[in-house]
Design a protein around this nucleic acid. Structure first.
Lengths: 189, 189
DNA sequence: AATTTTAACTAACACTTGTTAGTTTTAATT
DNA sequence: AATTAAAACTAACAAGTGTTAGTTAAAATT
C-alpha cells in the first residue's frame, strides 16, 4: 500500500480526477480505472460517490475552520493575523492541491452535509471580515470598503490551488512572503 | 420574445444553470424545462450541448482578448493599464455574471475549440505579465515576484462573478475604484 | 388565402450512470 | 492448516443521458 487506508487512496485518486474534470463529469468507473479495479469494488471501501466528495470537502473545510480559530484567539495584531491567514491557505493548499478544487467548485453537489459546509464557510468569512474591520478601526488597515478587501484577498487565496502546481520552484515560505507583500502592500511603487 | 434570438435565449438560460450546477451536472432536459419546452425542441436552435458551452466561453474569451488588445496598444502608463484591466473585468463580469462561471470552471469541457480557448487565455496572461514586468523596470511597480502579482490580481478579477451578484448595491464605478485601491495599493495603512 | 418558415411536439435510440447482489480470490490471523 | 477478514470479481438493474427522426402547430410572408 502506497499510503493510508484503501478508502483514503480512493479519495485521493478521486480528488485528482475531480480537479481535472469536476465532480459531475467523473464517473465511478473513471475512479475505478484509475485505481486499477472495477467500479463495484469501490463499494467495499466507500458507501457512495457522494461519500467521497463529502470526505474531501468536509475535511478541508474543518481544516480551515480550525486554523482560523487558532488565529482568531491569538494575541497578535490584525495585520499579523492577516499574515497568518495567508500562511494558513498556502500550507493547506500545498498539501491538498487536488482537494482544494472540489472545495471551490463542487461544494454545491454536497447533499446531506451542504448546510453544514455553508455554515463553516460563512463563519470563516465572518471571522475574516472581523479582523479587517478591527484592523481598520485600529488604523492598522487603510480606510476603504472591507467587503472588497475581504473578497479580494480571499479570492486570491482560494485560487492558489490553480497555480501552485505550475510554480513548483516556489518554496512555501517564499510564496507566503511574496503573497503577503502583494496582498498587504499592493503592487504600486 | 424577451431578448435576442431564440438561440441566444437558450444560451442565456443554460449559462444560468451552468453557473448554479456546472456544465456536466446540467442536462438538456434541465435547460428545456427552464425554457418551458421539451429537450428535443432545443435542437431546432442549437446543434448540441457542446455548442451551447462553446458559444458562452468563446464569446467571453474573445471579449477579453479584444479589451486587452485595446489596452496594450494605448499610450498610457503601466499602472494606468492595470487600472483599465480591472475596469475591463468589472464591466464584462457585470454584464455576463452567469457566463463567467463557465469561463472559469467549465472550459475543460470544450472539445473542438479547447485549443483555441487555451491560446487566447495564454496570450491574455502574457500581455498582462508584460505590463507588470514593464511597470517594474519603470519603477511604476514595486520590485517583487511578477508571477505572484499577476496571479494574485488575476485571481481576484476572475472571481468577481462570485460576489458581484451578492453586492448589488455596489455600483460598477464604485466597485472598480475600490478594487483598484485594494489591488494596486494593498490594505495596509 | 395559400404557402413557407419557425418552433414546438411525441417517440424512441443507443449508451452511460450509480449502485446492488452474490461470488471468488487474496491476505491476515488463529 | 484452517479460518476469518479484506478486497477483488461478474452480472445486472433501473434510471437518466444526449440526440435523432418524423410530425404537428403556430407565425410570418407571399
Amino acid at each position: 500500500m502506497k499510503q493510508g487506508t484503501r478508502k483514503q487512496q480512493i479519495v485521493n485518486v478521486a480528488a485528482r480526477l475531480f480537479k481535472e474534470r469536476g465532480y459531475s463529469a467523473v464517473t465511478m468507473r473513471d475512479i475505478a480505472t484509475a485505481m486499477g479495479i472495477k467500479a463495484s469494488s469501490l463499494y467495499n471501501h466507500i458507501s457512495s460517490k457522494q461519500d467521497i466528495l463529502t470526505n474531501i470537502i468536509i475535511f478541508l473545510a474543518e481544516e480551515f475552520t480550525n486554523g482560523m480559530e487558532a488565529i482568531r484567539v491569538s494575541n497578535i495584531s490584525n495585520i499579523e493575523k492577516l499574515n497568518q491567514i495567508i500562511e494558513l491557505h498556502v500550507n493547506i493548499t500545498i498539501q491538498n492541491t487536488f482537494e482544494m478544487a472540489s472545495l471551490n467548485n463542487d461544494w454545491m453537489h454536497l447533499e446531506e452535509r451542504l448546510e453544514y459546509y455553508l455554515k463553516l464557510r460563512d463563519d470563516y468569512e465572518d471571522n475574516f471580515r472581523e479582523i479587517i474591520v478591527e484592523g481598520m478601526s485600529n488604523n492598522e488597515i487603510v480606510n476603504g470598503n472591507p467587503e472588497v478587501m475581504l473578497f479580494s484577498i480571499l479570492s486570491t487565496l482560494r485560487s492558489l490551488y490553480l497555480w501552485i502546481p505550475k510554480k513548483e520552484d516556489l518554496k512555501p515560505e517564499e510564496l507566503s512572503k511574496n503573497l503577503i507583500n502583494v496582498l498587504i502592500n499592493g503592487v504600486k511603487a
